[in-house]
C-alpha cells in the first residue's frame, strides 16, 4: 500500500466522520426542534452537508471510474431534489396557514 493510498484512506475516514456527524446533527434537530420550519432547517443539514461529505468520503476511496461516476451522479441528483422537496414542503405549509414561530399569522388547520 502506497503512502498516497494510506493518506487518501485517512482523509476519506475523516470526511466520512464529518459527514455522519452532520447527518446525526440534522436527525437530532429533526427529532428535537419544536416546530415544523425549524425541523425543515435541520433536515436540510442532512441533505446538503451530510450527504455531500459522505459522498465525497466515498469518492476518496473509489478506484474505478464507473463507481466514481455513479457517486457524482447521486450527489448531483440529491443536490437538486432535496432542496426542491424542502422548498415545496415549506411553501405548502405556508400556504396552509402555518407560520414560522415568532411571526404572527393565521393558523387555519
Amino acid at each position: 500500500m502506497s503512502t498516497l493510498h494510506v493518506a487518501l484512506q485517512i482523509l476519506s475516514d475523516l470526511v466520512l466522520a464529518a459527514g455522519v456527524l452532520f447527518v446525526l446533527t440534522g436527525a437530532a434537530g429533526l427529532h428535537r426542534l419544536p416546530e415544523f420550519f425549524m425541523r425543515t432547517h435541520a433536515a436540510s443539514i442532512t441533505d446538503s452537508a451530510g450527504a455531500g461529505l459522505i459522498v465525497l468520503g466515498l469518492l476518496l476511496r473509489t478506484e474505478e471510474f464507473p463507481t466514481a461516476l455513479r457517486l457524482v451522479l447521486i450527489a448531483f441528483f440529491l443536490m437538486f431534489t432535496s432542496p426542491t422537496a424542502s422548498h415545496a414542503l415549506a411553501q405548502a405549509a405556508l400556504g396552509d396557514g402555518f407560520r414560522p414561530q415568532g411571526i404572527r399569522g393565521r393558523k387555519t388547520s
Binding site: F77, F80, T81, T84, H87, A88, Q91
Partner: peptide, 13 residues
C-alpha cells in the same frame, strides 16, 4: 412564478 422551482427541477430531472 410561485411554482417555478418545482417546475424547473422536474423538467431537469
Amino acid at each position: 412564478d410561485r411554482q417555478r422551482v418545482l417546475r424547473v427541477v422536474a423538467k431537469l430531472l
